[in-house]
Design a protein around this nucleic acid. Sequence first.
RNA 1: GCACGGGUAGCUCAGUUGGUUAGAGCAGCGGUUUGUGGAACCGAAGGUCGACAGUUCGAAUCUGUCCCCGUGUACCA
Length: 444
Amino acid sequence: MEKEKKLKPPKELPSGFEDRQENELLIRDFVISKIKEVMIKYGFQYLETPSFEYTESIGKFLPDKDRPGEGVFSFKDESKWLSLRYDLTAPLARYVAKNFNEIPKPFKRYQLGTVWRNEKPGPGRYREFLQFDADYVGTKNLQADAELCVLISEILEKCGLDENDYTVKISSRKITDKLFEKLKIKSKEKISTTLRALDKIERLGWNEIKKILGEGRKDKSGDYTKGANLNGDQIKIIENTLNSEKSDSEDINEIVKLFESYKFKNYKFDPSVIRGLEYYTGPVFEVNLNFDVKNSKGQTIQFGSIGGGGRYDNLVNNFGNLDCPATGISIGIDRLVFALMQKKDFKLKTVRPIMICVFDKNNIKKYVEILSKLRSSNISSEIYPGEGKLKKQMEYANKIASPCVIFYGDDEIKKSEVKLRNLKTGDESSIKIENLVNEIKKII
RNA sequence: GCACGGGUAGCUCAGUUGGUUAGAGCAGCGGUUUGUGGAACCGAAGGUCGACAGUUCGAAUCUGUCCCCGUGUACCA
């Protein structure tokens, strides 16, 4: 007996993977429907690419080239390595390269798809999650970049966020490029460490960042981060750059002008926005929420951004000699849903079935008559699907949050009426069968 | 990866300086005379106390190793 128990498969899930229940899925569906609405309005094409790609097709262009392949779920098929995609941008670049002659240029596409990352999960971070991507491929026009920010903002507001709930932050890789020129820093290592430090400024504050730019920093959990070893003058220059309210970068200035044309205001220039290290070539964007997000224990957690993107003019070129500038933005749908669930005023109406009680199995024919009436009026309904006494049936109805139950026993059948019990109020009334649909519509 | 905190019933947790048969609440199941849920009462059931090894007459409790979860940190396409 005990040995048998050990043989049972685990009911736990692999780390970083989650079951998702109706409540969350309905909000997700809602979000997706809003995304599609907006994307159609902005004239984007819908695309789907497979979950798996050849590892080289994504791995070769991993931004962190020190650790190729790490962070990706892979397996060997025959002689080739396959990997689950870790984002939707690399597959897009591959798609564009593959279909370069057929697709219009510029090419505007959006995609919704699950992506997988083989890394340590954290609060609001899973190893499998749904991502939304919108990209402009084949244009250097910064109107594309501007429109991406406008569009993401429209999506968020359609999903129920207001302008105080989020901010679109923009910067440009050109700003940091110029900064390193000024600082006379050429070492790749120093550049990465510095960029990573800047990326953390909002979370840790300038005082902590200074330590990382210098020798290093020990955080409160006792972990030590090695610093970039910059000198005081260099740090001072960085501080000045970060404190500049206005950008001296042409691309940002142009985007800001475009924002004015679009009457888009909910953005902020923030030179500490970094995003990926080796991937972006121009403007970068990041969308942050301005309200606290809590975990299941009620603790406020470091939630991070719910979306971001930027210009990546060299990515498609990696697949061949294709001069193909591009820019894109993405939203982590599940994180957005997670955040929406915590907004008090956010409620989605859910539909639960009306239940017809079973008094006598021999009367099923009668029950189905009622059921068909309801279903043909598009009313969610069911005959009690289990077995057992009325009490048990009522408990079930209560548990599934059925709005009301129908009693159609011998007494009612004789009088050709039904008894309707409203489960929220407990009210009970007898009504003629021909009035049933109308009465029910009043309740639901 | 690193640091800290945790792993006891399906869930949330209690378990005193090591001591006999490991507890509670909630959920689940059965019942309170069978055509009425969300309230109440009664009853039974449910655990290799994360795993392995060690110390001990005796370990949920102490020690070591490992696994898993949480939070922070690092990395983040």
